[in-house]
């Protein structure tokens, strides 16, 4: 399989005021981050808060250029944002002045898709995320979980080949979350999108991922990549949770724990 995304030695540092010395110190949000993602792969990134996951997606989206390193998608160096990537940000970032329908249609407008078709596409994605009937509401009238689902519909609607998702299901209830996970997997299987997905939920990572990238913080680097070679669907009402599934969960849990412990001891 050809590599869809190549991340080469990405480093991103911020200068922050140290609390003790009050001097500016260099802090690596990402350091020498190298990862190849193959076409149609579902990669999930987990790691402690502040380890650089959002920074990674920001750089992948093309919004920021990393201090060093390079990104290529389909062999082309990424120089800025484009409609080949869809980005669901951690804060939903809906356009407050647009109705739900118009929010979902934003990317379609940029794609110059005619109005009638836009309406059909947005309707189907609003339906998909379970917000049928809310088309003409404004974001302020929606709950956090609903806003998050609009953001997902907005990113899916213009059919990007790569999906960057930053904790997209964090604000929804457990049931909706399972439903959305199922939907995402089925969309992914149908459309062969390449997905990079950030989450704090280890179960979610094991449920969704082809590979789980476990990160450590300060500096933000890859600790380990865990391939999840389990058949799909991984959780179902009939089969329940398999032993192999639980084994992956506890393995990643252990990796994250170690990561935090070694960070603690490094600080002492």
């Amino acid at each position: 399989m050809p590599n869809k995304i190549e991340l080469n030695n990405i480093s991103q540092a911020y200068y922050i005021k140290s609390s003790e010395t009050n001097k500016k110190v260099k802090f690596y949000a990402l350091k020498d981050f190298t990862l190849s993602v193959s076409d149609g792969e579902f990669v999930v990134v987990v790691g402690p808060s502040g380890c650089g996951k959002s920074t990674l997606l920001d750089i992948l989206s093309g919004l920021f250029k990393a201090n060093s390193g390079s990104i290529a998608i389909d062999g082309q160096i990424v120089n800025g944002p484009a409609l080949d990537r869809g980005f669901v940000m951690q804060s939903y970032a809906l356009f407050p002045w647009r109705t739900i329908k118009k929010n979902v249609e934003f990317g379609l407008e940029l794609k110059k898709i005619p109005k009638k078709e836009r309406g059909e596409i947005s309707a189907s994605f609003i339906e998909l995320v379970g917000l049928h009937g809310y088309e003409n509401r404004y974001p302020y009238e929606l709950s956090g979980g609903m806003k998050q689902r609009v953001a997902i519909a907005r990113a899916l609607a213009y059919d990007p080949k790569v999906l960057l998702m930053d904790e997209p299901f964090a604000a929804v209830d457990a049931q909706t979350r399972e439903k959305l996970q199922d939907e995402l997997v089925s969309i992914w299987q149908k459309t062969n999108k390449t997905i990079i997905f950030v989450t704090h939920s280890i179960e979610e990572a094991v449920t969704l991922a082809d590979r789980v990238v476990v990160m450590t913080e300060n500096p933000g680097t890859i600790k380990e990549i865990v391939p999840i070679n389990l058949p799909r669907p991984r959780i179902s009402v009939e089969a329940g949770i398999s032993e192999a599934y639980s084994a992956f969960v506890s393995r990643i849990w252990g990796l994250l724990h170690n990561a935090e412990e070694s960070f603690e001891s490094a600080r002492l």
């Binding site: 093309g62 944002p81 990537r85 940029l110």
Partner: peptide, 12 residues
Amino acid sequence: DPVVLKAARAMG
């Protein structure tokens, strides 16, 4: 909100 601007820019 810069985040909103970010969302628009991310879509090109």
